[in-house]
Design a protein around this nucleic acid. Structure first.
Lengths: 217, 217
DNA sequence: GTCTATATGAAGATAGAC
DNA sequence: GTCTATCTTCATATAGAC
């Protein structure tokens, strides 16, 4: 009853950048919570398990976070910040051609999902467990990331370089494709991060029926 | 702390066919469990809430299912059976052209996700909560569904009608795109089921860089 | 098959010493 | 900031009458 048949996701390491983690025990709590929430879900992981993983008593957690929900909230926020940061970075200096921009966006998106699979799973799949006050920041960041892509696709469609029956539907498809990567990618996967990013960026352009690149590409 | 900010999925009705449901209270338990597990996750829903939703006392549930886990197991199985049934049906009589077969498969897949969003979400996203014995049947069915698509794409690639850098990666992308539909589709969505199915089937062919159809299409 | 009542354990969170 | 100890509520599941 405790053992799970299939792992929820393939990754086993709760990867977090030093920049993501507050120093000391707070950082340890985030890392341990990330692994637990990714593997068993927010509701399926207990404060006691979290404390065990950190190596402290359950009560000690409350010196750092006022509730279990606040730990999840912090993780979701870090995940959505990392995603937005990445797509903004890959978009920087890639020019005005919507094809280049979609390519860059998907590289950033898939790069995030494969570099931080647990963070991506938790930020996306556990957000619904938060109360409105604690999910608001993450929802805002997510909306910004989606809007970035939507604007690019919209502009490309208007310019005639993309041909899609519905912009929103195409954005949903490209997003879904990238988000899923977090569930199966591991650092030792036979396909490299770079390869997956490039291939999915190409698939995105195919979905959009992107016309062959002009002089700018 | 109890209210969720964003719904986990847009659908609000726990759609199940009469053919899916055992008669009497067992059927009511499945329908109520489907809604609860879809909206709050397996671990986030309690036996008491389930009993409340059915309109019986918690103890009465155990006359029908030996445990909460068995309710989830039944739901996952129904979902994966429905998916396999649908893709098999749409594949029937669509000929040997891999392009037609991919188109049919995705119509069946997306058709399932939009017709039974809660069932699709539970069957896919909650399967990890089951012990091996109770998830085995669903895992087998899922594997069959995936293999069907994999074989089609593989054959199309060998015949030269599809051009993909990696078959598995393309299948993952097409599957992810379709699976996601269950999270946003509702019966009163401005896009019709039929439209979404057709568009995503087309996107799948685009991902595969399908060559223009020959005489058979 | 449903009920009332309850066993038994685990949940999130707090009090207060050190 | 961490501990021990505990409060209170809720969890899954069972016993046994009707």
């Amino acid at each position: 009853m405790l053992q799970t048949a299939t792992r929820r996701l393939a990754a086993t390491d709760a990867t977090l950048l030093p920049a993501h983690k507050p120093p000391g025990t707070r950082g340890l709590i985030l890392a341990a919570g990330l692994k637990l929430f990714a593997e068993r879900g927010y509701a399926g992981a207990s404060i006691r398990e979290l404390a065990d993983a950190v190596g402290v008593q359950p009560a000690s957690l409350y010196a750092h976070y006022p509730s279990k929900e606040h730990v999840l909230s912090a993780l979701c926020r870090i995940g959505h910040e990392e995603l937005l940061r990445r797509v903004r970075r890959t978009l920087q200096g890639c020019g005005e051609d919507p094809r280049d921009q979609v390519f860059a966006y998907v590289r950033g998106h898939v790069g995030m999902q494969s570099a931080f699979p647990m963070l991506a799973v938790v930020a996306n799949a556990e957000l619904h467990a938060l109360s409105p006050a604690l999910s608001a920041a993450s929802l805002g960041l997510r909306q910004q990331s989606i809007q970035l892509l939507t604007d690019i696709v919209q502009r490309g469609a208007q310019q005639g370089v993309f041909t899609v029956p519905d912009v929103w539907l195409a954005v949903a498809a490209i997003g879904a494709m990238g988000d899923r990567v977090a569930y199966w990618y591991t650092p030792d996967h036979k396909l490299s991060t770079r390869f997956v990013c490039e291939v999915y960026a190409q698939y995105a352009l195919r979905i959009l029926a992107a016309s062959p690149a002009g002089p700018s590409a």
